[in-house]
Simulated assay, not measured.
Amino acid sequence: MSIQFNYRYGIAAILLFLVEVFIATILKDIFFVRAYLGDVLVVILLYAFVRSFICMDEVRLILGIFLFSCMIETAQYFNIAERMGFERGSIMYIIIGNSFSWIDIVCYAAGCMILYGVAKLKS
């Protein structure tokens, strides 16, 4: 593992973030896009963000992102955003989320499988 800025992943992370904002603000009424595609893309966004600063084993990073995503989803089950005092609609409330869903975990797994497939194609 080494720390080094990778502008390609940095640009990808920025673009994916903008897509996520677009989904959350403009496409919010299109259920499939908001509920599923956004969750698939968020793990890819996390991957690109981490890879923009850290060069490490791809499989470990993908597994770590999946576990992190599952931890956040589990925190949603326990209403962690409300317990931390974040108000509904606040940016932190939106980032953390407010409802647990097994389907979200499936979406995170799908995003990680896409990342893994791309990683294997590159090698």
Rank of each mutant, 00 (worst) to 15 (best):
I26R: 13
I26N: 09
L27T: 01
L27E: 00
K28P: 03
K28Q: 05
K28F: 02
D29A: 06
D29S: 11
I30Q: 06
F31E: 06
F32N: 03
F32P: 01
F32G: 01
V33E: 06
V33L: 06
V33P: 08
V33F: 13
R34I: 04
R34M: 05
R34Y: 13
R34E: 04
A35H: 08
A35C: 07
A35N: 09
A35T: 08
A35S: 12
Y36H: 15
Y36T: 06
Y36Q: 09
Y36S: 04
L37P: 08
G38L: 15
G38T: 14
G38I: 14
D39V: 08
D39I: 07
V40P: 13
L41M: 13
L41F: 13
L41N: 12
V43I: 15
I44R: 06
L45F: 14
L45D: 09
L45Y: 11
L46F: 11
Y47V: 06
Y47K: 10
Y47R: 07
F49T: 08
F49W: 04
F49V: 05
V50C: 05
V50P: 03
F53P: 03
F53M: 05
F53K: 06
I54D: 00
C55K: 15
M56K: 15
M56R: 12
M56L: 12
M56T: 15
D57Q: 13
E58C: 00
E58Q: 01
E58P: 00
E58W: 00
E58R: 04
E58N: 05
V59G: 09
V59E: 11
V59M: 11
R60W: 02
L61S: 02
I62V: 00
I62W: 01
